[in-house]
Amino acid sequence: MKQNLKKVISSKDFDKKLEKQLKQITFSEGFLIEQSNLPELWETVTLCKYRQQFPELYPKLKKKIDNELFITDNISYYYKNFQINYNIELIDINYIKVIESASLTIVRPNINEFEWDFGVTFDDTPDENITYDLTFEIKNVDGIIFEENDIKTRKKPGLINKYIAKKLSGQLEYHIERRIELVQDLRVDRQFSFGSDRIIDDFSLKIKHCDKLSVFFTTVNKNKMYHNGAFNKEDLAYINRDIFLSGEKFKIFIYKKSEKV
């Protein structure tokens, strides 16, 4: 019996079957989920593909390869039912006010503490007419207050980023209402863009503007949105029931009707 077993184990057929089974286990979802080094595994698999096709690029790619979907901070939560309303008004000869009102849900995998962050970027200018205002509210959790000193500032050449980072815990979902008011100089900046580092599941927006302005909406980075049938055909209302991955989602270009586009 032992001799027969040894013959089976030492046979080439057994080696092939064992190798096949090990490969199936190694690349099964159940096995991979249990691994603590998924970003490294993803990097290795991606690099192997390019190494096979373009081995001369391998050393350069290894230094640069990255994927926002696999950054731990970026997968600590995602958004769902993200709804935005824009109101854009010409308030002076060259200045517009953009009001963004948003309702969204943060989805967590557990109730442990995490950091929710959000930011707005605008031009760094000494113009006193350029203003901003950010307000937040969590509707389903009492006792969490967003104060003015929660808003921090980061600067890049020519840009200012106002952001908030708030520790939250105890819920699987957080229902957020957010309002942003910005004043822009159309001579300097005539676009308003929206992006997110996190995945968004189910997104909709509606744009209203005064009759002195023309507004053009366009998606970017292969994102797709279609007209929201809950509104009239002439309304600037868009929706996508699918998911948006990390990155910029769309741009809004704003012109005075007296200008040539």
Rank of each mutant, 00 (worst) to 15 (best):
I84P: 01
I65A: 07
I164W: 00
F118V: 15
Y86H: 09
S11E: 04
F192Y: 05
L205M: 11
L245Q: 03
T105W: 07
E19G: 05
S246C: 01
S214F: 04
N223C: 00
N223M: 01
V120C: 06
S36H: 09
L38I: 14
V215C: 10
I96V: 15
I243N: 03
G119D: 00
E89V: 11
I199V: 11
L168D: 05
L57N: 06
V107N: 09
E173V: 02
V107A: 08
G195S: 13
K162A: 01
V220H: 08
F118Y: 15
Y163P: 01
A237T: 06
C210E: 14
Q52R: 08
E40I: 07
E113R: 11
N85R: 05
Y78F: 07
T105S: 12
I130D: 06
R241P: 00
E234L: 12
I144F: 11
C210N: 15
P109D: 05
K251P: 02
S28M: 12
E148G: 02
N129I: 10
D201I: 14
K139Q: 09
D133N: 14
V120W: 02
M1K: 01
N94M: 11
E148V: 04
R187M: 06
L5H: 03
Y255S: 04
P59M: 07
Y86G: 06
Q83H: 05
G195R: 13
V220Y: 07
I180N: 11
K249D: 00
K64H: 12
L182A: 03
I106Y: 08
F14G: 03
D13N: 14
K206A: 08
E115N: 10
N232H: 15
I99P: 09
S246N: 05
N161L: 05
Q21G: 05
V120Q: 08
K249R: 01
D15H: 07
D66W: 06
T131W: 15
K249I: 02
N4C: 01
L186H: 10
I243W: 01
K16A: 09
F253Q: 02
Y132Q: 07
L69H: 02
F146Q: 12
C48P: 05
P55T: 13
